[in-house]
């Protein structure tokens, strides 16, 4: 059940998107999110949708794989959608007892759910086509200016350390999810109950799950620290990269596409 979370997982394939520089993808995702939250009419929405579908096609990641990531938050989406639908004032369309569906509410609900769904699918396109290491390398490089700026004013922003922490966290998320599953089963075999009871009872019932999980995470951290030291890890200084980030003509073309998308989007927004 927990294993079905796809957010933050990499899907190996050989596509244009996979071979793009992570910085391009980071920038692209940023642009996508900004446009996603600033559309206010149907043509703009259609434009974003077409762009998303195009990118998904380019990624060669099966669509079903991306949708799987949605399953875990479907309840959240439904609740948020319902709240919007019933609690927004406007012209009443349908009346269900004390609850009213208004026109503005309906539009808001659709807007908000589609935004959430597209936000999750869009960001998972990035994580599915970029290895966590590339992603952190991209972040590290993109935030490189912070290090330089920090050096000038004598503050260490630990950009490399943060990038390293991120990549390790991403590496161990699936491992810890599997572990959670295992410990949960083991405690259930001892009669533990993770499902019934009120909020307080549920929270106390989590103790037999959380304590072993923390213990295991600490044990792994100790092991990992040794393993990293044994392989000569000594912070970011003097480190080289197997695949240093360099822009190719493909990345240039991607940047051009992105800028064209931005211009087109805001042109349409201004006109309509």
């Amino acid at each position: 059940m927990l294993r079905e979370i796809t957010l933050g997982q990499y899907y190996p394939a050989n596509s244009v998107l996979h071979s793009l520089d992570p910085r391009v993808k980071l920038f692209g995702t940023l642009v996508y999110i900004i446009t996603l939250f600033s559309f206010d009419n149907v043509p703009l929405f259609a434009m974003i949708l077409i762009a998303l579908i195009g990118v998904i096609k380019l990624s060669k990641v099966p669509f079903s794989f991306m949708v799987k990531g949605l399953r875990s938050i479907i309840m959240l989406l439904v609740i948020a959608g319902l709240f919007n639908m019933f609690l927004t004032p406007g012209i009443t369309l349908v009346e269900l007892g004390p609850l009213k569906i208004t026109d503005v509410g309906l539009i808001n609900a659709i807007k908000m759910t589609s935004r959430m769904v597209m936000l999750i699918i869009g960001t998972s396109v990035m994580t599915l086509t970029t290895t966590p290491n590339q992603l952190t390398a991209g972040l590290e490089k993109s935030l490189g200016f912070l290090s330089k700026f920090g050096a000038a004013i004598n503050v260490d922003f630990h950009v490399h350390d943060i990038a390293m922490i991120m990549s390790i966290a991403l590496r161990f998320i699936p491992v810890l999810i599997e572990e959670t599953d295992k410990i949960m089963k083991a405690q259930m075999a001892r009669g533990a109950d993770f499902e019934t009871g009120g909020l307080v009872k549920k929270a106390t019932n989590m103790v037999p799950l959380l304590v072993p999980l923390f213990v295991s995470a600490f044990r792994r951290a100790t092991d990992l620290a040794y393993a990293m030291e044994a392989r000569c890890y000594n912070g970011g200084e003097g480190r080289t990269k197997m695949r240093p980030l360099t822009y190719t003509s493909l990345d240039q073309r991607a940047y051009i596409c992105l800028f064209m998308y931005i211009i087109l989007f805001y042109a349409v927004k201004a006109v309509l």
Binding site: K182, A186, Q187, R190, P208, P212, S216
Partner: peptide, 8 residues
Amino acid sequence: QYPEHQLF
């Protein structure tokens, strides 16, 4: 397997 991991 590794039941000691469930001690809490």
